[in-house]
Design a protein around this nucleic acid. Structure first.
Length: 855
DNA sequence: CACTCCATCTGGAGGACTGCG
DNA sequence: GGCGCAGTCCTCCAGATGGAG
């Protein structure tokens, strides 16, 4: 069928969906969401598509320019709900033409039906009102991830959205919301506010309560539901849209070129729909729930939705999607007041940086520093922040421990060009850092917010984009970021979602910045905050370890370790545990706690002797603080080393105090005892892995340990860094020449971004949420992520791979400095084995082998 | 400047739901 | 398999705060 648009405008976007699945190099698995079915959508625009342009300006999809006929972009999109249902995943294939058509169809929406709202299917987080902001769907970036490079030129923007792996964006029916919605959404962030449409709500009706009706039951049928939503989903979007975002919309004007945004978005949505099966799957998508808020949507908004509506907020859709690119655009015009923080001096108009099509997937571990650049969290967020549900009003921005808000600064950047700081909510468990499936960053707006921001969606993960301005010394006060809790039932229904939401309430704020260099390379840095407990009650009761003064100790034990944290009690116990790969406890013992020296926020414990005094290799164990039966902290990682190996001490304070934690730790992985996360790094697997597999990883490990001293500023602590060095992938993908910077100790991801076309590759796609295995807490879980494997193994060769450091040595805490290049790579066979075990993945093995081989 | 309205932020709590014994 | 208990999830309520009109 032809889309209305086509008819109307004669413009038919061609969308080609390419599914990367086949990519040998990257197992779909890994990609998971993101990658997976990647679909790249290319829209043929009337005018030739200038990739470059697109990139920047348009969002990915949206970008496209104006319609041939000049019609406003917005216009046409119509969404037919039905379509979704009708098109199963299969559709994807069809991509070729039909797509466009479909798209169109999809676009057409019918609004209102409400049913779906709550359906799981509709997941879109974005949708959430609160989140509303969500928006954006697609993150452009994603596209990059996708392997579709081919897609081409297109990679560009367009792809992204669609492409995004899984779901990216939007897509889904549920997503739809997002996608489309997303954009739409919200302008305003606040839930209440934002949303809009009562209308919607009404229809949807659903809502509020439990998804299932009176009682909340989580039905998995999502399907059923899902479908509906699906159909509607679009609506969601609509819903969203309306409100949405102004921001989104904004652009349009400015954008002109891109005009099609709407269309595009629609397309994207369509695509998404296609790609995934139903809404459901989208798991990626974020569930939409009906929120009351939503209901609130403004009529206006809804109105916009109309197909014809030019106004529509076309922008909405689009905008979100391209975060980076868009940024620039957005604010201004349209959005004006709505969205972004108004009137902030900074205008999002600068497109550039993010242009590059290929930005690393959100679940890739990136270094916090590279060469002269260092992304640091100068002021850490408080360890507790009650996240708000979509059904609630915003609970405000995440605050710093000492008051105020977290502060992030990029050091070493001397250019005059502003950059965009990306923020998303990541996991804080033992595994590798990745976007948290149950929490999304929520843009806070209001008078009290001084930092402009704007939301974008990246594979179902909302990203807040904040300008880093030279005039502010590349420092940003994060007073515009709240945390939205998605209902577990909604997320768990997603296809491919393996994580469980129950008790999975710890998150970290993850900051990223992509620096385009004159050479065409892009340096990607990432810093993760300390863990943040987001539940209402647990935050008040569960002990939380923020920091540990020791990370290693000789097998005989006896050393004293200071634990800093919260909710410690006079009778708190510290239990050391060693688990087998299968999770069975191999050893468990209670450490002696010096009650006199302990306080509610600190414990002084004596490290118990390890069960085996004769260690030939370091042994990773865990410990936790226990306040009673079910009140235990998360596992903290600890390593017993053979006698003679220096113990690693973490800095006592660094940050602890509050606000200050440095990124180092932050990167998520910090070594420090950041409670939740650290472990990852430490994990045996990791260690070994890192070394072998991923430079980055290794690196990180080393750093962590090294890092121990926070002081060092090496921010780098990120757990596993992905080196994006192309090499590894190169095989698979024609990647661009990503080169590592030789001299840089930390290897960050450097891509050459020649053009958009550049093969993005480097980053293995992973899906954030995807991580299949994720379990919330088990320390045992191997952190190993496929991705790592995927990652380039670079290193071996040359560049000083960060990873190289070995932990044992690593520990040499001494330097805080970034790891020196020279790293000797040691393999610990045993550990490797574990790795294997942990993974279980053939893939890993293969990676491993591959690596080892190289080594 | 006082008052009202609105929006946001917070804290608290209850009912629904889940997991475990 | 059913029951009760405890913990967690999600929603709702109400108060505080602050800005705009």
């Amino acid at each position: 069928m032809k889309s209305a648009e086509e008819d109307a405008y004669g413009y038919a976007p061609n969308v080609s969906l390419s599914l990367p699945l086949g990519n040998p190099c990257l197992p779909s698995q890994y990609h998971s969401l993101q990658s997976s079915p990647t679909i790249s959508v290319s829209v043929t625009e009337p005018h030739a598509y200038d990739a470059q342009d697109d990139m920047r300006v348009a969002g990915y999809y949206s970008s496209s320019s104006v319609r041939p006929n000049g019609a406003p972009t917005l216009e046409s999109p119509r969404i037919e709900i039905t379509a979704y249902g009708q098109f199963p995943e299969d559709e994807v294939e069809e991509s070729s033409l039909p797509v466009s058509k479909r798209v169109n169809s999809i676009v057409t929406l019918t609004l209102p039906s409400a049913d779906g709202y709550r359906d799981p299917s509709c997941l879109s987080p974005a949708s959430s009102i609160s989140s509303r902001s969500c928006h954006s769907d697609a993150s452009s970036y994603e596209s990059s991830f996708s392997y579709n490079y081919d897609n081409s030129p297109q990679n560009s923007p367009w792809q992204s959205p669609s492409v995004s792996p899984k779901g990216s964006t939007l897509t889904l029916p549920g997503d739809g919301c997002l996608s489309g919605g997303s954009p739409r959404h919200s302008p305003s962030t606040s839930p209440r506010t934002s949303v809009t449409d009562d209308n919607w709500m009404g229809q949807r009706g659903s809502r509020p309560n439990s998804p299932c009706g009176a009682k909340r039951k989580y039905s998995f049928n999502g399907s059923g539901a899902a479908h509906k939503p699906f159909q509607y989903s679009p609506n969601h979007s609509p819903g969203l849209s309306p409100q949405t975002s102004p921001r989104l919309s904004v652009t349009e004007e400015s954008w002109l070129p891109n005009t099609n945004q709407y269309t595009n978005s629609a397309i994207l949505a369509a695509i998404n729909a296609l790609t995934t099966d139903g809404v459901t799957d989208l798991g990626e998508g974020i569930p939409m729930k009906a929120r009351k808020t939503s209901q609130e949507h403004n009529p206006t908004v809804s109105l916009k939705v109309e197909p014809g509506g030019e106004e529509l907020s076309p922008g909405e859709l689009c905008l979100d999607e391209h975060p980076s690119n868009r940024l620039p655009l957005k604010k201004e015009g349209y959005c004006g007041g709505f969205l972004d923080v108004p009137q902030h001096p900074y205008s999002w108009s600068k497109p550039k940086q993010y242009v590059s099509p290929s930005l690393p997937a959100l679940d890739w571990q990136l270094p916090s520093s590279s060469g002269p650049y260092s992304l640091q969290i100068e002021v850490q967020p408080k360890s507790h922040h009650r996240a708000h549900y979509e059904t609630e009003g915003s609970r405000g921005a995440v605050k710093a421990l000492a008051g105020g808000h977290p502060v992030v600064q990029l050091h070493g950047y001397m250019e005059s060009e502003p950059l965009t700081l990306q923020l998303f909510i990541g996991t804080a468990d033992d595994r590798l850092l990745r976007p948290h499936a149950f929490y999304q960053v929520h843009r806070i707006t209001g008078k009290t917010v001084s930092t402009p921001s704007h939301e974008a969606l990246h594979n179902n993960t909302k990203i807040l984009e904040i300008p880093l301005l030279p005039e502010n010394n590349m420092r940003a006060i994060i007073d515009c970021a709240g945390i939205l809790k998605l209902r577990n039932s909604d997320i768990e229904l997603r296809k491919g979602e393996t994580d469980i939401g129950r008790k999975n309430t710890r998150v970290r704020m993850v900051f990223r910045v992509h620096i385009n260099q004159a050479t065409g390379r892009t340096v990607n840095l990432q810093a993760a905050s300390n863990p943040i407990e987001c539940s209402q009650r647990s935050a008040q009761e569960l002990p939380l370890v923020d920091k540990q003064s020791l990370e290693t100790c000789p097998a005989p034990g006896g050393e004293r370790m200071r634990l800093d944290g919260h909710n410690f009690q006079h009778d708190s116990k510290v239990v050391f545990v060693e688990k087998a790969q299968d999770g069975h406890h191999l050893w468990e013992t209670e450490a002696k706690v010096d009650r006199d020296a302990s306080k509610s926020n600190s414990l002084l414990v004596e490290i118990p002797p390890y069960r085996n005094q004769r260690l030939s290799t370091p042994v990773h164990v865990n410990f936790y603080v226990c306040n009673g039966k079910r009140k235990r902290s998360q596992y903290q990682r600890f390593t017993y080393v053979p006698a003679g190996v220096p113990t690693i001490k973490t800095e006592p304070h660094d940050d602890y105090d509050a606000p200050l934690v440095c990124s180092q730790r932050s990167p998520g992985l910090s070594l420090h005892p950041k409670p939740y996360f650290p472990p990852q790094v430490m994990t045996p697997m990791m260690t070994s892995d890192l070394r072998s597999c991923v430079v980055g990883g290794a690196y990180s490990v080393g750093q962590q340990r090294l890092a121990t001293k926070p002081s060092s500023s090496s921010p780098s602590t990120s757990p596993k860094l992905h080196e994006l060095s192309p090499p590894p992938f190169s095989k698979c993908l024609p990647a661009g020449p990503a080169v590592q910077q030789p001299s840089i100790p930390h290897v960050s991801i450097i891509q050459e971004t020649p053009g958009r076309y550049q093969p993005p590759i480097l980053y293995p796609p992973s899906s954030a949420s995807s991580s299949p295995t994720s379990q919330p807490s088990t320390p045992t879980d191997a952190p190993f992520s496929p991705t790592h494997c995927m990652t380039p193994a670079p290193p071996v060769s040359g560049s000083p791979s960060p990873g190289a450091q070995q932990h044992p040595k690593g520990p040499e805490r001494g330097d805080g400095s970034p790891p020196t290049l020279a790293v000797s790579i040691k393999q610990e066979p045993q550990e490797l084995d574990q790795m294997y075990l942990d993974d279980g993945d053939g893939v890993r093995r293969s990676c491993f082998n591959f690596i080892t081989t190289n080594i």
